[in-house]
Design a protein around this nucleic acid. Sequence first.
RNA 1: GGAAAUAUAGCUCAAUGGUUAGAGCGGCACCCUUAUACGGUGUUGGUUAAAGGUUAAAGUCCUUUUAUUUCCA
Length: 1134
Amino acid sequence: MYKEYKQLNLSQTGKEVLEFWKQNNIFEKSISSRSANNPYTFYEGPPSANGMPGIHHVMARSIKDIFCRYKTLKGYQVKRKGGWDTHGLPIELAVEKALGITKDDIGKKITVKEYNDACRKEVMRYTDVWNDLTEKMGYWVDLNDPYITYKNEYIESLWWILKQLYDKDLLYKGYTVQPYSPKSGTGLSSHELNQPGTYKMVKDTTIVAQFKVKRDADSAFLFEGVSSDVFILAWTTTPWTLPSNCALAVGENINYVKISTFNPYTFEPVCVVLAKDLVKKYFKAEGENASFEDYKGGDKIIPWKLEAEFKGSQLLGVHYEQLMPYVTNADLEQNAFRVIPADFVTTEDGTGIVHTASIFGADDFRACKENNVPSVLVKDENGKDVPLVNKQGRFVDEVTDFAGYYVKEEYYTAEERAAEGFKATDVLISIKLKTENRAFDVKKYEHSYPHSWRSDEPILYYPLDSWFIRTTAVKDKMVALNKTINWKPESTGTGRFGNWLENLVDWNLSRSRYWGTPLPIWREENGGEEKCIGSIAELNAEIEKSIAAGFMPEGFTLEDMHRPYVDDVILTSSTGNKMFREPDLIDVWFDSGAMPYAQWHFPFENKEEFAKAYPADFIAEGVDQTRGWFFTLHAIAVMLSECSDEVKAVNEKVGNGGVAFKNVISNGLVLDKNGNKMSKRLGNGVDPFETIEQFGADAPRWYMISNAAPWDNLKFNTDGIDEVRRKFFGTLYNTYSFFVLYANIDKFTYSEAEIEISKRPEIDRWIISLLNTLSREVDGFYADFEPTKAARAIQEFVDAHFSNWFIRLSRRRFWRSDNSDDKLSAYQTLYTCLITISKLMSPIAPFFADRLYCDLNAVTGKEAFESVHLAYFPEYHAELVDTDLEERMQLAQDVSSLVLSLRKKIGINVRQPLSKILLPILDKDFKAHVEQVKELILSETNIKDIEYITDTAGFIKKKIKPNFKALGQKVGKDMKAVAEVINKFTNEDIASLEANGSIDIEVAGPEPLTTHYSLLTSDVDIIAEDVPGWQVANLGKLTVALDVTITNELKQEGISRELINRIQNLRKAKEFEVTDKISVRLSNHPYVKEAVESNLSYICAEILADSLTLDSQLNEGDKVEIDENEILIVISKI
RNA sequence: GGAAAUAUAGCUCAAUGGUUAGAGCGGCACCCUUAUACGGUGUUGGUUAAAGGUUAAAGUCCUUUUAUUUCCA
């Protein structure tokens, strides 16, 4: 017996199937049953288990799961090693929050060891929740032996990679201006800067400052004709960088002007220089050439006069007085405080002259370096040159007026900011400059500015020592190899990723933190000698030397490669000096990008496993990983393909040009139903556990995959899941229930010999043909990483063809009590469809598909697999696909649909039989096609016969239309004229064309020419538009005419059908079994009398009645109504 | 400031440059059903974001603009 269910419960099904998988190790078997020599490699992008998973994780992991399951069906062995990303700032911040400390407290209130121990615990905090989700959503990944990035083995592999890079001079130390978060005490990588919410609109105090020009040979031209001081105007959104100003940058080709006017704050006469394009921004038109004598301080209109105009190149070399002279020296006086050229200067905003503080801007830094402008620096307690702003973001003591002040208002506590008289440092600087006649304009300005993505405060651009990977050295190869990667969607690969590679800069690897992979580089204190360590063995050997030199205690062993332990290691240089580890950690993105190697502890172990699993055939993550994981995987792979012999050898062996992955899906975001981002703050997130508990995992998976392509953003709406449940799973479940209902009655176990497909009825061959077409399509879609198209194709098949045509029209075949070949054929066909669908859908809906497969297979034992996930993808049998048949069936569906629409139009319902329909013959195959599906049409529409007519007598009114596609190529520019001629065709013209197969027409060409064309029947569409006197409907070229005459005989049959319907409804209402025989008595009402008498045996057969009697005395039973006549019916089981 | 994606019915999505832009959901009406929570037939609903251009022909190709989103600076 096939299992029967009361109702569809996907949640329950999911739980049971999950238990079944667990009990029987189905996942393990799905790997072990496939040959290791036929691997398909998938890399799991490691999640960080320090936060709760969201519904978007279900989306991302469904995509991964689908293709792994698909490839398993296709016979590949798909190992999927799980992994955990365990390092990084989010974990540090979570720990700091939990312990109530800040970065400053590390090493003071709490030791580095205690801190790191806390991180180690924190990082796996939600592991159980994650594992739970992984299971419940049906994501198959190996959780028993995951790679964990904090393990010594993992770190050792990272060290090995770094050493490979170091040895090829791809790892170097440099000094750059970087985004820096004073609160976190660390630089931020560009990956971190692109976290969502980093850039925010802020209102900053901005100053247009006046830089006083020094009068000398270079600047003499500026003083011609003016008696006041001359100032260069420069705009800044970061007034706190003004004390560090060291140059002014201009565009060499920009036009500048000199203007005489008054300072709006001090009212002193001044002469200012700015870009010509920006004059109108600072000077009112009314003030131009207004009287200088009449000006009084405070007047709304300030007079101004254009004095001279010149190119930016003329300003080069002009010196000016230091604006805020807190710190200076001979070098600065000599080489700084002058005008330099820069290509980034524009006249879009500001003054067209850029205030340049070399150490607080990346562009500034570069421009100053190119022009040999020294920076404004002070010595710290160790005599080291440091900026005027310290690492906490406060001014140093040398900036006397503002010593100890935070440069950004946001760095103060809320209480401090709320205090009476509190003013932001930028404002204080403005006030000072205003009183000194050094400020020309002070305004609030709203712009987007990067913020530290967790501490939520504005970052500073700040000079830091850093270690870099020279990714620019392999840029060309990275670009070239990227073109060999199959990106879904393509635009992410060529656009977002491709552009990023084109503009590649060196990878800043350093992080000043505590919980992460330490940089394996030791240096002499004077920076002389340097050593990069590539393995634990190598380090131990060095430690031995160091112990011998007396730098380290006897018996020292390094248990844990993290800080602080690794910092205890002091090595010896060749000259016998101490070497200390560079204190930086490396970017966590390096951890994840190195997972192809480090997950196997390559090259120290598992060389074979690595060679078999490199590169990945497939990876998938969110589009936000484009510059994250996708980039680091690619960068490391390309670099190792250049500089590691070990990796080179593997690449050669497996024929890899140097990529880490061959196919990649970058999926979009999951938004809430209104298209807003899901966030904790808005509380619009969807809990994946609740969703799965309610719907099971299949429906959400199917919904997410079928609704939008993975790379489009998904508007997640629970109503959509419910729709999928009802429409797709509900329908499929019902097809199964239908099958089971009759298969159990008839004891169908597929034990009979297979009926040859060619011997099965039309409708069976049709659905088998469609099924094969579907298998091939779905196979192609999965292979192309188009899961959405696969899901939609399956859904369309199940809903439109399988359930609502094949089964609907086949129902009667199952009701018959004899065991004919036709019935057997129906069973076999239905079964084949169900089992094939279960396989096709199994990658997307793994639970329900397996239940369906197992329930069917448990009875028939047709296949030897205990789960659909151990089975193989349905094979495509080209010989079973009959496109002719598919077209015929389409014809049957179309004709039926037209007849039903005509019935609707004239108000004759389907239970009323009609005598015939009339089909105008379109072409010679048409009649033969229809004849083959005639019975289907007749029974579906309740019509007695089909007649065909050919238009011999001009009886049918025809319509002709140009076939634009065919004609377009033939007549090109004359299309319009030709179409006009065709539309004017008379019935005779059409008849002539049909008779002869062609007709000559002429259209007016360029005067006085005319052009002749010979029209073929293939150049036009001719349809029979109307059959006068009949009810007619059209669909495309198809036309149907309906005979609406109801003879008495038809009327009686119609009444019989109504009666049958009422009795069937009663059977159902009384919950009779479909096999129960009944006897029936009903009122001897004149309306039904004749119908019953003349169709008695037909009626009895339909309702499984042994007897049907008309009883004039009947006064009991159920009251039913037929055409407004009330009739009593008594039915009883025999 | 730069790059990319998207924009089609109230909602979710289709539409190899080809006639009158289609489905599903939702709403309304009627109907069918011895599998159905399904379905059928109608009906409701569109200036294909806007403006230009290319073409005999544009939702589709090009340009510009706008909006949303993402990424980078």
